[in-house]
Design a protein around this nucleic acid. Structure first.
Lengths: 211, 211
DNA sequence: TTAAAAATGTTAAAATCTTAACAAATCAAT
DNA sequence: ATTGATTTGTTAAGATTTTAACATTTTTAA
């Protein structure tokens, strides 16, 4: 019985992948899916998928497969937080605005509720209905139950991390191109093109020898 | 002797992390670093770091540590491709332009050499010295030795993948918010805020039970 | 110059993760 | 209803990854 055990790290990292694929299936009006089909889709062994899902509960039916709609629902209910995560965005440069313009946050984990910047030409305005405040007002404006911050600035990111922690933020999505660290108790997820390209190159290249 | 063995997948994924941290050290004029110091910085066990590095060769000195400059150089020479990767960008929306505006590609793996889009108001122009062509001209314009494409469009991404493959592209950085698949022989690296936020939430949340 | 301190690279054991194999359950067809 | 075809969830074995421990080498200080 795997159900109830604590979920392996590797498994947790795959849940978002499944969820994304399931959404695609749903949008294509697919109502049921086999672990083998999902396997094709996400390039993860079907056994691994079945095992991963079994940590949450018995979600499938033998001889039938999984109900797409139900699976999505379970992911949302069990793993998500009810879509009401209040996320803040620090930095409204090119990237920050790209994030704001992508407005499909709802029904995923939550949404960006406010943004912060320093540039006078942007502070005080709203972008896609999201108000932009001056970063000096962070402590004053941040919602009390805000746990996640997206950091998309290029300066003084490390300092900011400490301020965010004091405000109760426990998770940071890091879009800076610098290396930042978070104290114990905080989680950091880095999103970086350059790193991804390097991974790609490192993976596709045969690694040459050196001494 | 680990040197010469084939490098574990997990190790390869850590190399970019090390490189980033090393760059930070260098910019702070740090000349040498211990595996234990690097460990603090990147939150990976020092033994793991030493082991990872030993796959490339004997890069450190007992009783001394690692030379930051040398390590960076080795990463570049051995793992990189000489910074001359010709990367193309598909899609010059908010996100695409954000990528173009971030012009620190040089001396990392290569640089974006051209971009493609469909919007008439952008096709034919140059952004940060990068020419933007119409996507219909992909096959005609793409550099012969281009291996990596960044895909930052929201429509018909799957079709595009097949076209890119025919052009010799073997690696895709996927910024679409949809689920795309690549055929065997191609590598895919997905960069997605929503997925990252979900990972964060899944990680920080105690996973509730379900049945 | 010598000896102690320090830090790497490697070994081997422990931990984690993946997957083949299969029992149990469901569906579908007769 | 019964039988056969499927497909899940689980077990256990296999593979991979991590890490503690240590031998070896280099540095540093007397």
């Amino acid at each position: 019985m795997t159900y109830g055990k604590n979920v392996p790290k590797a498994t947790k990292q795959r849940y978002p992948i499944y969820l994304k694929a399931l959404r695609k299936l749903k949008s294509n009006n697919v109502e049921r899916v086999l672990s083998s089909e999902l396997s094709e889709l996400v390039d993860i062994a079907s056994t691994t998928i079945r095992r991963d899902l079994s940590f949450i509960g018995c979600l499938g039916k033998q001889g039938y497969g999984y109900d797409v709609e139900k699976l999505i629902q379970v992911f949302n209910e069990v793993l998500g937080t009810g879509f009401d995560e209040k996320i803040i965005l620090i930095g409204c440069g090119n990237l920050g605005q790209a994030l704001l313009n992508y407005n499909r946050w709802d029904y995923v984990v939550g949404e960006i509720v406010m943004a912060f910047d320093i540039k006078p030409d942007i502070v005080g305005k709203t972008i896609k209905n999201i108000p932009v405040y001056h970063i000096d007002e962070l402590e004053k404006r941040i919602p009390e139950d805000c746990r996640i911050a997206i950091v998309a600035i290029s300066q003084d990111a490390q300092q900011l991390v400490e301020r965010l922690q004091k405000c109760g933020v426990i998770g940071i999505i890091d879009f800076t191109h610098t290396h930042i660290q978070v104290p114990k108790g905080m989680a950091l997820k880095t999103v970086d093109v350059v790193t991804k390209i390097q991974e790609l190159v490192f993976e596709t290249n045969i690694i040459k020898k050196f001494r």
